[in-house]
C-alpha cells in the first residue's frame, strides 16, 4: 500500500465517522453541546492544530539550526594544505 493509499484510507474512515456523527446517522446520542458546538468546528480545529504544529516544528528547527563555522574553517585550512601538496606533486591547480 502506498503512502497515498494509506492517507486516503485514513481520511476516508475519519470523514465517514465524522459525518455519521455530525448528521446523526447512528443511534448514538451525544451531549447537546458536543453535537451543536464542538462537532461543526472540529475539522477546522484539526486543520488549525496541524498548521500550528507544522509551523512550530519548522520554526523550532530553524531556530535551533546550528551553523558550523569550525567545519568551514577546518576545510579552508585543509584546502590550502591539499593545494600546496598537490602542486608540489605537479598537479595543475
Amino acid at each position: 500500500m502506498t503512502r497515498a493509499t494509506q492517507a486516503a484510507t485514513f481520511f476516508g474512515i475519519t470523514a465517514t465517522i465524522y459525518l455519521a456523527l455530525l448528521f446523526q446517522w447512528l443511534p448514538i446520542t451525544l451531549p447537546k453541546t458536543v453535537q451543536d458546538f464542538t462537532l461543526p468546528v472540529l475539522p477546522w480545529w484539526a486543520l488549525v492544530s496541524f498548521g500550528a504544529y507544522s509551523l512550530g516544528n519548522i520554526g523550532y528547527h530553524v531556530l535551533t539550526f546550528r551553523d558550523c563555522p569550525e567545519a568551514y574553517n577546518e576545510l579552508q585550512v585543509q584546502i590550502s594544505q591539499a593545494q600546496s601538496d598537490l602542486r608540489s606533486k605537479g598537479v595543475s591547480i
Binding site: R3, A7, S54, N57, I58, H61, V62, F65, R66, D67, C68, P69, A71, Y72
Partner: peptide, 23 residues
Amino acid sequence: GVYGWDLKRKVISRGANFLASVL
C-alpha cells in the same frame, strides 16, 4: 550542521524536509 546558509535557505530546507517526513 550546515555552513553558509541564510535564514531563507534554512526555512526552505526545514519546510521541505518536514513536508517530506509527513508525506
